[in-house]
Design a protein around this nucleic acid. Structure first.
Length: 321
DNA sequence: CGACTTTGACCTGCGC
DNA sequence: GCGCAGGTCAAAGTCG
């Protein structure tokens, strides 16, 4: 089994951007699909594919530009906000916004994942935190991740590749849904804690707040470095994304997902990839397989949520450097 | 049987 | 100092 080439389960957005896009128009895709056993003119088919490829490339470029523009305007808005805050300290603080110190620190240092710009919670506590000298003491790296899940899913589980032990749950005043407290249970000495709570604004969004940094590798990576040769146990972080000049590249680790659906998808990907490599197949077959893989991934809510979190996290951490 | 979750009690920090 | 609210502990329950 040739697992080494598939260690990182990498997908290049350039190749599958069309399927990973939101609101993918299905009609053309299905009409252009290569159907096994049916005869097509090769020229005709390859011409259409080239055309399609060009279109996808152009679209991808356009999206990249949009993303860049969004990042720029976000930065502009943020600096405006900072300006306003420094000119106009402490105004209109509602009683509900009088959070405790730790939460203010969360928001203050939350430049990794502060996606919800309009979120009343973070905007109000930002103001508050700026006036408290004690908050300059930053003892732990704090980040926040927003993960979209099924609204009916009450488990408050955010799969991030680490092993967590739940040690408490509490209903907080400003949010009717309970907040769960987790400690990293993979290494006893690991100081990292995680708080998970549903967003008050959108019940389908789960907010995970991480405090501290892991003093060990993710369990999946530990297995890999300890010499395991099993394909499914290899990998790095659960999901990460990088924005290169040539286009975004996404690296996924589906191995730690307990969802049978995700495991199945991962298996499908691996088997499809092997099919592609082994069968020296035509571009049509390859395209078909890529589309299949991409559509399996995009149908999985866990995948899309992790992807969104990873992209936004990487975007903002890159910007803040 | 061990690991994990649940949940009520307790601790701690903060505002009044 | 008191009360409130968030955070943590630990015993009991659950599950594989």
């Amino acid at each position: 089994m040739d697992s080494s080439s598939w260690v990182d389960t990498s997908l290049d957005l350039n190749a599958s951007a069309r399927s990973l896009r939101l609101e993918t128009p299905k009609k053309e895709t299905s009409s252009n699909l290569f159907v096994f056993g049916k005869k097509f003119s090769v020229k005709e088919e390859s011409g259409a594919l080239v055309e399609e490829l060009n279109r996808v490339s152009a679209e991808n470029k356009k999206l990249t530009e949009m993303l860049t523009a969004m990042c720029e305007s976000y930065n502009a808005l943020q600096s405006q906000l900072m300006d306003l805050m420094s000119k106009n300290p402490e105004k209109e603080l509602s009683p509900a916004s009088k959070k405790r110190k730790s939460e203010s620190i969360n928001n203050e240092n939350n430049n990794n994942f502060g996606i919800h710009i309009g979120n009343s919670e973070s905007s109000s506590t930002d103001e508050e935190s700026s006036k408290k000298p004690r908050e300059e003491i930053i003892k732990a790296k704090i980040s926040r991740v927003y993960v979209r899940t099924e609204a009916s899913d009450t488990t408050l589980v955010v799969k991030d590749g680490y092993q967590w032990r739940k040690y408490g749950q509490k209903v907080t005043r400003d949010n009717p849904s309970p907040r769960a407290y987790f400690k990293c249970s993979f290494a006893p000495s690991c100081p990292v804690k995680k708080k998970v709570q549903r967003s008050i604004e959108d019940q389908s969004v789960v907010v995970a707040t991480y405090e501290g940094e892991h003093n060990h590798l993710p369990p999946s990576q530990m297995e890999a470095t300890s010499g395991s040769s099993r394909c499914m146990s290899l990998g790095s972080v659960p999901c990460s994304a990088s924005l290169n000049p040539t286009g975004p590249t996404i690296t996924l680790d589906l191995t730690k997902s307990k969802s049978s659906n995700s495991e199945e998808i991962a298996r499908n990907i691996i088997s499809n990839k092997q099919k592609m490599e082994s069968s020296s197949s035509s571009p049509e077959v390859r395209k078909y397989l890529v589309e299949q893989m991409a559509s399996s991934l995009t149908k999985d809510p866990n995948f899309t949520a992790a992807l969104a979190a990873a992209i936004s996290g990487r975007m903002f951490s890159t910007k803040s450097n």
